[in-house]
Design a protein around this nucleic acid. Structure first.
Lengths: 327, 327
DNA sequence: TTGAAAGCGCTAACAC
DNA sequence: GTGTTAGCGCTTTCAA
């Protein structure tokens, strides 16, 4: 528990020199350096980041805001963020908002109180007004979900195009009646994916049936089951489902298995996200793969750049259609 | 970006008074309090945790060490930790070691450098020697996995008993040939669960067949598939599988589905952990539910107690057998 | 190349 | 009830 003073005394130098050995070793003579390093070792000295951070007015902590860590979609993104952060001597504060505004405020307070140097927001339900306000003073990046008119830099994929390709894939397979399991359209990605869905149908002259468009409140397994029940109760059933989330699609798959509907023969299903689990289901799930790890590394790099006063440009990453057993 | 000095000046009081308004509002007169609060508002002042933390020699950050956030087993534990931490004004630094000793060292350095006040370790592969060394100086709690002779407090479940009950359940269903998908026995939980497995077999006079005991290196989906292939290639096949991890069991399920083996009629499967996904599979998975959220809250409370100099006792929480469709 | 000293923003002991 | 002041551990400017 020695501090820099004790090290300085033991080595017979000033604290400034100890600090130099730690931070710019090349400006001190090898001889002094050796003395200091010796003292450090003998005293088992570990520099305190509390002192350093106060002096440098930084925390070297990055806030990562996710709606829920239960959603595997975020896992690889987080891994990417963490790797980039570590590479640049930052650490991440992973914050789960649970779409709870109070929690969100607690986390926002961390940056106001200088406990975090910046924010990567991935929460579609984030209070965008507060975020905009904060972005005037602090470094903020939006990852995956973003608000167009916020002026806050973002990294994402082309959701409209991805949805378009997914639906086109179903149409080419011969499907004409295609359901859409969508999220609440207050979210940008939901609107964009719906547009892609409609563009594909229109391009092939297929009618848009409103009964086939199900809006779910949550992107989870149970919502997928429920949405499936609703379309299976229609007298005119679709033959394929495009779901904007793998979790929803897994629910659909489960309901098909339960009721004995054969996938993909009687019902084709396509998901979105390529969560790890989508390859473990029976049958495996066709899905849109987002470059999640890369979304994470890019977001982290952008944020760190911004924290250091740099300028940053919006980025659109590529996606990919993974054709597996469910279509 | 005002600091405490500016607030004091604006309010016409000393910095000490400002600090008091912030930390023990009841010791200042309502009049001064009002003046200070007014100044705070006008200046948009936010107290800096950097200054406060240095002064208090604390970071109010708790390090949470997990092998991988991909394993859903840890998700609810983390949620529990986070809730308890927030309730007591702490935040968590979620650290994924990926069983990489270098990463682990980076994270350990965080506590050595005072960036974290303590550690909750859930990594079975943690370097226990380093952990023991650190525990002399810093607050550490082991959660779920622990080392018996480390003297580091832990919270966990009775793994032997849980495994015993799982296997007994299979035996009562009439199974006599039961495979064990286990983890590497260098881990305590693996040894304990194997003991429970053997105790159940012995109690019912069933022979122990070494061919039925598969050791997997990783607790993941692919290992589950591989283990299943191995037992299905035996000329004398078991009729049931007890897997020490749901992820492994999900792999087994998938392989059964692929090869057309009916679950549970031709092969019963039981998992361990009750990860969210175990209820989404086809068929749903019988499993041992650990009280994960509670493991998290208890671990966090123990750690905070220890950080504050308190004494803490080891805790064993209850588990539960969840019988679903796979048995 | 090195040292002295100021100061990052805060809390708390002490004095009044 | 409030103010003065020292100091938490560090970095960096300035001077030597």
């Amino acid at each position: 528990m020695a501090n820099i003073n004790e090290v300085a005394k033991k080595a017979g130098v000033s604290v400034a020199t100890v600090s130099r050995v730690l931070n710019s070793p090349n400006v001190v003579t090898p001889r002094t350096k050796a003395k200091v390093e010796d003292a450090i070792k003998k005293l088992n000295y570990e520099p305190s980041m509390l002192g350093r951070n106060l002096r440098n007015s930084e925390s070297r902590l990055l806030l990562v805001l996710v709606p829920s860590i239960s959603n595997p979609f975020y896992i690889d993104i987080i891994k990417g963020i963490e790797q980039s952060a570590l590479d640049q001597n930052y650490n991440i504060l992973l914050c789960e908002t649970d779409s709870n505004p109070e929690r969100e405020e607690i986390y926002f307070d961390l940056v106001r109180k200088k406990m975090a140097d910046g924010i990567i927001s991935m929460d579609p339900a984030v209070n965008i007004e507060t975020l905009k306000e904060l972005s005037k003073q602090y470094a903020i990046i939006q990852c995956s979900e973003y608000s167009e008119e916020s002026d806050i830099p973002y990294v994402t994929i082309d959701n409209e195009e991805a949805a378009y390709r997914a639906v086109k894939h179903l149409i080419k397979l011969g499907h004409q009646e295609i359901a859409l399991f969508n999220s609440n359209e207050k979210y940008l990605y939901a609107r964009e994916r719906k547009e892609g869905y409609m563009r594909a149908l229109q391009e092939y002259g297929l009618p848009i049936n409103d009964e086939f468009i199900i809006m779910t409140d949550q992107l989870n397994f149970d919502s997928g089951i429920e949405a499936t029940k609703r379309i299976m109760n229609l007298k005119d059933r679709p033959t394929a489902i495009f779901s904007v989330s793998d979790l929803l699609a897994v629910g659909a798959l489960k309901e098909m298995n339960r009721t004995g509907v054969k996938v993909p023969e009687e019902m084709a299903i396509i998901g979105f996200d390529n969560i790890e689990f989508s390859n473990m289901t029976y049958p495996t799930l066709t899905t849109i793969a987002q470059p999640m790890y890369q979304l994470g590394t890019v977001a982290a790099n952008m944020l760190i750049e911004k924290v250091n006063g740099g300028e940053v440009t919006n980025t659109i990453l590529n996606h990919e259609l993974l054709i597996r057993e469910s279509t």
